[in-house]
Write a protein that binds this DNA or RNA. Structure first.
Length: 442
RNA sequence: GCCGCUUUAGCUUAGUUGGUGGAGCGUGGGACUGUUAAUCCCAAGGUCGCCGGUUCGAACCCGGCAAGCGGCGCCA
């Protein structure tokens, strides 16, 4: 029982006056005496089917008329061009209900629930996420998301990067230890990974150019429009490259994602009310780069209370992004503000060779990356200076003991990129089952 | 960890300066042969988040709790 004809085929206009058998779900019904209108949807679109008494067996007519929203059906009929339905419709000659919906528990997501929560953010819709997935807004988001994932793979694979997987159970932290999820592990403690990076560095001398798209986990209690506890992380690592080389990849990747969305998902983006000119601007223009010091000066000139050495929090990032119409890099943060694996700048050891990529429209950080500390002497100094225990990082230090080379990489928050480019109100809108500090169900 | 807001039918909500709760959608029944969130008539459906207090009387006032949402710090 495979499916050969999709609603999008009918809407393309090539099947006029042909009989088709459409498999799908009832989106809406209207009835006017002896004529019934059924809007049928599948994953590719929706179309109006018109059932008239006498044109199909009575019992099929009755079954169709009493079909509730989300009943699965197979509808057979003649495709007709018809202005009254805004293009094409199907004149029903046969209908088979495959999976009925019980009137005692009809599909709970009604027009009223959708109208108020344009974005699926009410408690009710989050509780019914498994059903909300079927709505057109969520379907559109998931298609855009799929294209972003595809674009990331195609970018790296075209450049001969190798896709490489790191473990999800780990013993040590990448970022600060407070955001680790601890899990029992046969009488010991393990943690869910926060990043692929440390294990990627171990494979760097083997593969030289590698990337991944994988979930990362952070036990942050953040309740913002850009945070999840489980998020999809696209990371890359290259040997024989420095901060500038890594940034060049970050810029090229984000521009490639924008170009891919314009090619594959313009219609979906417009459905969501997104201005395609903005996406074109991001795809076609170089991303400016400013140093941390310049960012601090700019902020101070605007009267923002910030001292040198402070990390830039979201409110300050947001003020900065207002100066730019495209994504832009912030580089050379003070060493004291960043973890041990960032390499100090040989020209001025107060700074590290790192970068963040900030998305415009007030969105904020989507990439964090940089050059790694790559000599044994320097990595031990930095680990000790931070007060971090060496033991969990022995394998990481070994990368430096046996033929260390300059290398670097970045991590991109895939959900954040989708959220930014789709113009979502909240990052939850772009992932099927969002996880945050308050929600692990459904 | 901190600050703020919300909670009334399956969903979205109105409401009473304290006197046993209204509507729209959805569902069920009826009318209608071109509807576009169809329309019209009828019906069922609510311990007004939970616990306690004040009161002759609490959905409404007070206290506590819970859940959810928004935001901050931190980050991708």
């Amino acid at each position: 029982m495979t499916k050969e004809i999709w609603i999008s085929d009918v809407l393309s206009g090539t099947l006029v006056d042909q009989e088709v058998s459409l498999k799908g779900w009832v989106k809406r019904t209207r009835s006017s005496g002896k004529i019934s209108f059924i809007t049928l949807r599948d994953s590719t679109g929706s179309i109006q089917c018109v059932a008239k008494s006498g044109s199909l067996p009575d019992e099929q007519m009755e079954a169709l008329k009493s079909s509730l929203i989300e009943t699965s059906v197979i509808i057979t009929g003649l495709v007709k061009a018809d202005e009254r339905s805004g293009g094409f419709e199907v004149a029903v000659s046969a209908a088979e209900v495959v999976g009925a919906v019980n009137p005692d528990s009809p599909f709970p997501i009604t027009e009223s629930a959708m109208a108020v929560a344009d974005g699926g953010e009410t408690e009710f819709l989050l509780d019914n996420r498994h059903l909300y997935l079927r709505t057109s807004r969520m379907t559109t988001m998931l298609k855009i998301r799929s294209s972003v994932f595809g674009a990331i793979h195609s970018y790296f694979r075209e450049l001969d990067f190798v896709e490489y997987q790191a473990p999800c159970f780990v013993a040590g932290a990448v970022e600060g230890g407070s955001t680790l999820f601890e899990v029992p592990y046969f009488g010991r403690k393990a943690y869910l990974t926060q990043s692929w990076q440390l294990y990627a560095e171990a494979a760097m001398p083997a593969l030289e150019r590698l990337y991944t798209i994988a979930p990362s986990f952070r036990a942050e209690k953040s309740r913002t429009r850009r945070h999840l506890t489980e998020f999809w992380h696209a990371e890359m690592e290259i040997a024989w490259g420095g901060n500038d080389d890594v940034m060049a990849h970050g810029e090229a990747l984000v521009r490639h994602i924008c170009r891919t969305l314009l090619d594959e998902r313009s219609q979906e983006l417009e459905t969501l009310g997104r201005d395609l000119d903005l996406i074109r601007r991001y795809a076609d223009n170089p991303f400016p780069r400013i140093r941390y010091d310049e960012a601090v000066e700019r902020l101070q000139a605007k009267g923002v209370d910030i001292e040198w050495g402070q990390d830039l929090d979201y409110s300050k990032e947001k003020i900065l992004t207002q100066d730019f119409e495209v994504p832009h890099f912030l580089t050379h943060y003070p060493r004291i503000a960043k973890p041990f694996y960032h390499r100090p700048d040989p020209d001025d050891e107060k700074y590290v060779l790192c970068h963040d990529l900030l998305a415009p429209e007030g969105y904020g950080e989507i990439i964090g990356g940089g050059e790694r500390t790559w000599s044994e002497k320097e990595i031990l100094e930095r680990i000790d200076e931070e007060g971090t225990p060496r033991e969990p990082y022995e394998f990481y230090i070994d990368v430096r003991r046996y033929g260390g080379v300059p290398h670097g990489g970045f991590g991109l928050g895939v959900d954040r990129v989708v959220s930014w480019l789709a113009g979502a109100e909240h990052i939850r809108e772009v992932i099927p089952f969002p996880r945050d500090s308050r929600r692990v169900t459904p």
